[in-house]
Computed example of a mutant assay.
Amino acid sequence: MTTSPVPRFDEWLDLIEERSAALRSVASKSPADARIPACPDWTVTDLLAHVGGLQRFWAAAVTAGPAPRPPADAEVPDRAPAGDLPEWSARSTAVLLGALRTAGADAPCWTWWADSGGASTAGTVARHHVHEVAVHVRDVQDAAGVPEPLPSGPAVDAVDEFLHVAFGSMDGWPQSPVRVALVADEGRAWTLILDETGASAVRSAAGEGRPEADATLSAPASDLLLALYRRIPWDDEALRMTGDAALIRQLVVWPTLR
């Protein structure tokens, strides 16, 4: 099976709109006070407010352009929910999409992943936020007792982004140098090279050779991503491991989630 190409900017915007609408839809069918299993201090209401606040934060960051720091609270208009929560959430999505469209994919802006070596642009904000919302849709589905896999295309892209951005932003690997392979059933694979300098990811496609690894984690991309985001345990039955299982456990708990 082959993977889909990386989405274009306009496709990321469409996915933000679609996944945000999916979040509101599943939230509307869930008890407002249902607890989020991955974030037990949050209810469904809290999570919907969190995502809306994130969208307004990223809108402010994109609108501000290049900056040495993230927007301060006073620079993020209406970040706290007001009035009807679903309506405020829908407006938050519209604010973000408007900021992204106005800026364009290549407009530089502040991002927390600047140290990863990846671009800090409106386009990378759009890409990252697709993945944020997709994981939070799954969170609300979990709270409602109806979890579903993430859509395959965004999940493959999200694994790629996580490995290059989240791991790429980390300081040196605290253990001995190792290599860990993650293999998506959709036909994409990555080898993480971990040493005192941090982590670097090498992409490969189905049938291509890849560096030897000390441990390998294979699964559908949705399950790989959910494991990386600590939404399912590293030893979940959906994850197929070979090599050093303890190394997989160390890897999953290493990055700081944002």
Rank of each mutant, 00 (worst) to 15 (best):
G65R: 06
A103I: 10
R35S: 06
R138T: 09
S116Q: 10
W12R: 12
A166R: 11
A114Y: 14
I248Q: 08
A215N: 00
V135I: 15
S152T: 11
A67M: 00
V44Y: 03
D33Y: 09
I232G: 03
D236H: 15
V156C: 00
T124K: 09
Y229Q: 05
P71I: 09
W112L: 10
G187Y: 04
R230F: 08
P86W: 06
S4E: 03
A80N: 06
L182N: 01
D236A: 14
P174H: 12
E17T: 15
W42Y: 06
S204D: 11
G209N: 11
V252N: 06
T43V: 07
D195R: 06
A238H: 13
L150K: 07
G243W: 02
D73P: 10
T3R: 05
R188E: 01
G207D: 03
D160H: 13
A61I: 00
A215V: 00
W12S: 14
G117Y: 04
G172Q: 14
W254L: 00
A90Y: 03
L163G: 05
L251E: 02
L97Y: 08
H129K: 14
R127T: 01
S20Q: 11
P68C: 15
P37G: 14
R24L: 12
A184E: 10
F162Q: 01
A60L: 11
T256N: 12
A22N: 04
P108F: 07
V6C: 08
W110H: 06
A199V: 02
G104N: 11
I248N: 03
P233M: 01
S120R: 14
R179S: 10
P211I: 01
D157K: 08
V140Y: 00
D73N: 08
W190Q: 03
A158F: 06
S200K: 10
S169N: 14
G145M: 15
A103R: 01
V253S: 01
A246H: 10
A32T: 07
S200D: 15
D160A: 13
P147I: 08
A94W: 08
V95G: 00
T111K: 04
D73R: 13
D78P: 07
G53P: 01
